[in-house]
Design a protein around this nucleic acid. Structure first.
Lengths: 338, 338
DNA sequence: TAAGGTAATGGTATCGGTTCCATTTTGAGC
DNA sequence: GCTCAAAATGGAACCGATACCATTACCTTA
């Protein structure tokens, strides 16, 4: 029968320190300086012995400052998303905020629910990697004065910063590399682009730039990770263009994973048939002779997103980042050496 | 100059519906049935037009029910942790709770901070995958009546359910498989076991069981992912035991990643020298001829952890799971065919 | 028809803080 | 030593909900 000891409150600290609620509140808030050194010491001591910690719920209530940032992630199981989330979380903590991460599993319904929820918890800012088009809800946040930053994907009619990769540059770099290496025909494999502005941009740019480079090209879209159609597309692409040197460019990490499986299934020799992916993954170096990738600066992207938010929350405290689109880094491996 | 419209409150809804705060509160709480159909309709309508949503902060204040579960993850970049987190989150939502995930990057200091924080947000339950030994703080939670479940790793002197893999069984299964395949000498590679009871158990069991199976064996510990010592250990292990059939068993996913790199560095033929890992990873099938693994039932583990918590929070609403230690699944691939 | 019980609804204190305003203390200037 | 402003501290209302208790309305049953 252990007695359940409640968490101590500001009143108890005040009583023990021989001070008023107000002073204790000041001590734990922004106004500690206004207290005399002796009072500060008494409060510090009292709080220490009681193990007092302000109740954030109560704090959030009066001033509306929950010290919470909400984040919506489309697919938490994608290592790229995890890396970004990691960056966002670190940055939040640096600014004294906590992060509530909500994974939507690319489901607009879950996205809707999670947005409601984040609203109910009075988040002070929102980092959104959208799965659907939650315009309505995002506008609600905006009209309430809650700043929003879009991560990697735009949302129609929502005027907010979009932080992410410079998609044009990425595609250009990829094609330039492939052309340099002597590939003459490139197949672009992407996950379904409907829900993602980034995927659309990459796809469009691919077609545009492939033409410019004088490359033969085709595209294949993965419908919810079903690779059968792409297997087909890959085979016939090769049949059509070989013996010209052929390569596959993958629009993101998941596409790279799926295509790599297809290469093995078909017994295609990596390198002789080129393979390149956007997003760097742990294992890209491990599949012989290594898969060439374009790595995104995930930490920087995450930090920049938070910096945008902080600038809007407290314009004086933090400056607006100047750069919102970032360049990838080419990591060259054997899969693009014919 | 868009006017910043505040989020509407219960009072506004009450006024619009011509009802009292109390009734509106009942409508959104557990007591909706007590309201007459006509009142329910009026409130529903009012809430709808105002876009009202209860403020969780205020809710949490009075009743102490924040509807929040906190989770401490030692390393969010480990795909295994992500998979578990995913399971935990799903289960939480199912029970009407939200999850606040805190990543500690295996740093006890961050762990300490995050625990403080979760306390401040009045989480109603805690899922802990510990990085250090936060006994003190966990006891504070327990004495306040906040239930705790330990994930994968125990914490000394903290009496709480531990949900995770059956480590003895896992090691036994691995060694049995390796022995069956004809390997006669096994090197066990693990990350530093100091902070993790699971790593300790696996290591100890390995030594015990290898002896029982009559296998030659050795162990090597990775000090913060520095592989130099293990490279050394692996070379000399092979030098000592070859031409007997040798294999390496990796204690977790990260060890598998590092050892796979070493195999490539040394040009070791996978299979001829065996390789097996605990934790299934995306790419294990992709490195020819495929790496044999023991997969953990991550979703089940996550869900079970939450179920434990829910049972403690509301004993009547949810039953206590009977099984807390789970069996792995052997996924056999070419890396263990000599 | 009056008594008595239940269902439906409202009033108000309260949760643990913050914040505005009032009050007390302190110290500088003359 | 006295005045007066500034610094230090305290009092009390308030944030948006919940929960207990009181009240009103409506049926039964004697």
């Amino acid at each position: 029968m252990s007695s359940i000891s409640r968490r101590s409150t500001i009143i108890e600290v005040a009583r023990l320190a021989g001070a008023s609620k107000t002073s204790v509140s000041r001590y734990f808030g922004e106004e500690r300086d206004r207290l005399s050194p002796s009072l500060q010491a008494r409060i510090a001591h009292a709080a220490g012995t009681l193990g007092y910690q302000p109740n954030q719920m109560a704090r959030g209530l009066k001033g509306g400052r929950s010290k919470l940032i909400g984040m919506l992630v489309a697919d938490i199981r994608n290592p790229f998303s995890v890396a970004i989330t990691h960056g966002v979380e670190q940055a939040c903590r640096q600014y004294g905020y906590s992060l509530v991460v909500c994974n939507t599993d690319n489901d607009p319904k879950q996205e809707h629910q999670h947005l409601d929820l984040l609203g109910a918890y009075q988040v002070e800012g929102l980092v959104v990697n959208a799965s659907g088009s939650p315009e309505r809800q995002l506008h609600t946040f905006i009209s309430q004065g809650t700043p929003i930053v879009l991560l990697d994907r735009e949302v129609d009619h929502v005027a907010a910063e979009v932080v992410g990769l410079d998609n044009h540059l990425a595609i250009d770099m990829a094609l330039e590399h492939l052309a340099d290496q002597g590939y003459q025909a490139v197949l672009y494999v992407s996950e379904a682009p409907e829900q993602s502005s980034t995927r659309q941009k990459r796809l469009a740019r691919f077609c545009h730039a492939a033409k410019q480079h004088g490359l033969a090209y085709a595209t294949s879209l993965l419908a919810n990770s079903d690779s059968a159609a792409t297997l087909q597309a890959l085979s016939s692409f090769l049949a059509t263009h070989q013996p010209s040197a052929c390569a596959v460019l993958c629009g993101n990490g998941n596409a790279t994973l799926i295509v790599t499986r297809l290469f093995q299934q078909l017994g295609l020799p990596l390198g002789e048939v080129g393979l390149m992916g956007i997003d760097e993954l742990d294992w890209c170096a491990l599949v012989p002779p290594g898969i060439t990738t374009l790595a995104q600066p995930t930490d920087t992207i995450g930090k920049t997103a938070v910096q945008c938010l902080m600038h809007r929350i407290a314009p004086h405290a933090s400056s607006m980042p100047t750069e919102l689109s970032f360049s990838p880094t080419l990591i060259e491996r054997g899969s693009t050496h014919p």
